[in-house]
Write a protein that binds this DNA or RNA. Structure first.
Length: 456
DNA sequence: TTGACTCAACATCCTTTGCTACAA
DNA sequence: TTGTAGGTTTCCATGTTGAGTCA
């Protein structure tokens, strides 16, 4: 450079962007977003996710940049998908937001289709990150069919990188620092997972300027969605199941059924709950916030009474969640819906097996092997089975055949879990019929609060 | 290649009375 | 004056998953 205008070189190095300045750029380093400067060597380093910001800042200041960060070449990708109106709007909103941000769309609304359209529109090497092997296989099939080229896979025993690659969160976490310069776009499926302490590193170590997050439920109770906003972008488009019901998703009803504890269960529940509340009263923990709960957990490590209280609470939870009259109510529901396709959800593995034995229902829990699981879901799909009972396994990331009746026998207070379970019955019905979700709640127990919480 | 196993990571786990600080 | 949002961060238990190891 013959004149005194500043000049900067950017390179990718193990999950970071290295910034090298010439003398004329002295003083610039410290003012760049995310950069930790070493003034003596005129170099600095920023986490790779700051790359897009860095580029924009340097461009705004008319700094000459030798950009060597991305080792990517443009790709020509085309798709035949005809987007629905809300999918077109979602894509447009994302592009308008600078090709960063999250789409919050219900299960079954075709989030994948929007992502494929985004990939085709940008035409850059793309990494798709997914939470389960099941989703890894689904995306791989979909992308291979759509774009024709071989698709890379990271996870499930495969470690093959291609310009279009699908990875599990776990594999992406293990490989992100050496793959960070290979992709111009990264798609995070079920992006709420990115809030986990470890997984968020994936987004930090990748330089990809374009970022797309997909989820049905963005907000996290621990507030970690704010970190996701920093790393991927805010929610730029949102649709609730109610918005699409009747048109692109099945119309649905939610029916709450209250049951009571048997006298024996009530006695046991009150005794266990009493052990818990007595300890709270005597220990000065008032349970006004989540931090009080953590305090209790902390104490239970050293204080036997705290441990006893926590265990009692756990047992009380089991009593209310697995109440005998829920099982009787389920018998009536199954009887009423002989002609329907029913999925039963519970919070406890034990109950799944009890129900499986009593009603001769095929059961799926985390103990069910991949092969057996495929077989059960296959039979449910082709109609040989019309009922399935599952613990928490079918909530997300599994291609579950459509049903029209869901029974939530027990569940957590998680809004996400509830939304995902509801999503299992929302595929539009051939006869235009409505979907129905039963929610069984034990009266006069903490479950009333749990149920209220998950409904938002 | 398959299955059985271990390990690590992640998520939920809690409350309903009235405290404190601050915004409208 | 009235209304409302915030408070907090370690490891009791159960459930689930992916990765890695070994036979």
């Amino acid at each position: 450079m013959s004149d005194a205008s500043p000049h900067v070189t950017l390179r990718f190095e193990a999950g970071t962007v290295r910034v090298e300045c010439d003398d004329a750029a002295d003083g610039l380093l410290a003012s760049l977003p995310g950069v930790e400067a070493d003034p003596r060597s005129l170099t600095g380093r920023a986490p790779a996710f700051c790359y897009a910001d860095l580029r924009a800042t340097l461009a705004a200041r008319d700094v000459a940049v030798d950009d060597r960060v991305l080792a990517t070449a443009p790709r020509s990708l085309s798709t035949d998908y005809e987007l629905r109106e809300y999918q077109r709007e979602a894509l447009a909103a994302w592009r308008e937001a600078g090709e960063r941000g999250v789409l919050e769309l219900p299960t079954g609304s075709g989030k994948t289709v929007v992502a494929v359209a985004a990939m085709a529109a940008l035409g850059v090497p793309t990494l798709v990150v997914v939470p389960t092997i099941d989703l890894l296989e689904q995306w791989e099939r979909e992308l291979r069919t759509e774009f024709g080229d071989p698709v890379g896979c990271l996870g499930g025993g495969e470690q093959r990188v291609e310009p279009v690659t699908v990875s599990t969160y776990d594999s992406a976490y293990l490989r992100a620092d050496d793959l960070g310069d290979r992709f111009g776009l990264v798609v995070f499926d079920e992006v709420h997972h990115l809030g986990g302490e470890g997984y968020r590193e994936i987004a930090r170590l990748l330089a990809a300027p374009a970022r797309l997050g997909l989820t049905a439920t963005f907000e996290r109770p621990d507030g970690a969605h704010e970190t996701i906003e920093e790393l991927v972008g805010p929610v730029v488009y949102r649709r609730d199941p109610e918005d699409l019901a009747g048109d692109h998703l099945a119309a649905f009803d939610i029916k709450r059924v209250e049951v009571s504890l048997t006298p024996a269960e009530r006695e046991r529940y009150d005794a266990l709950q009493g052990t818990f509340t007595d300890y709270l009263a005597s220990s000065g923990i008032n349970m006004r916030s989540g931090s009080d709960y953590r305090e209790l957990v902390k104490r239970s490590g050293t204080d036997p009474r705290a441990r006893e209280a926590l265990l009692a609470k756990q047992r009380a939870r089991e009593v209310m969640m697995n109440a005998e009259r829920k099982v009787e109510e389920l018998a009536a529901i199954l009887d009423r819906h002989r002609e329907d396709r029913v999925i039963v959800f519970t919070a406890y593995t034990d109950l799944v097996y009890r129900l499986s034995e009593r009603f001769l229902l095929p059961a799926i829990t985390h103990e069910t092997g991949a092969e057996e699981r495929r077989e059960i879901l296959g039979r449910f799909r082709d109609g040989r089975y019309s009922r399935v009972v599952a613990a928490n396994v079918l909530d997300e990331g599994v291609d579950v055949p459509d049903a029209n009746v869901a029974v939530v026998l027990s569940g957590s207070g998680s809004e996400r879990e509830f939304t995902q379970r509801l999503g299992r019955i929302l595929r539009p019905k051939a006869d235009g019929g409505r979907a129905l979700l039963y929610e069984l709640v034990t009266a006069e127990t903490a479950e009333e609060r749990v149920a209220a919480r998950r409904r938002g």
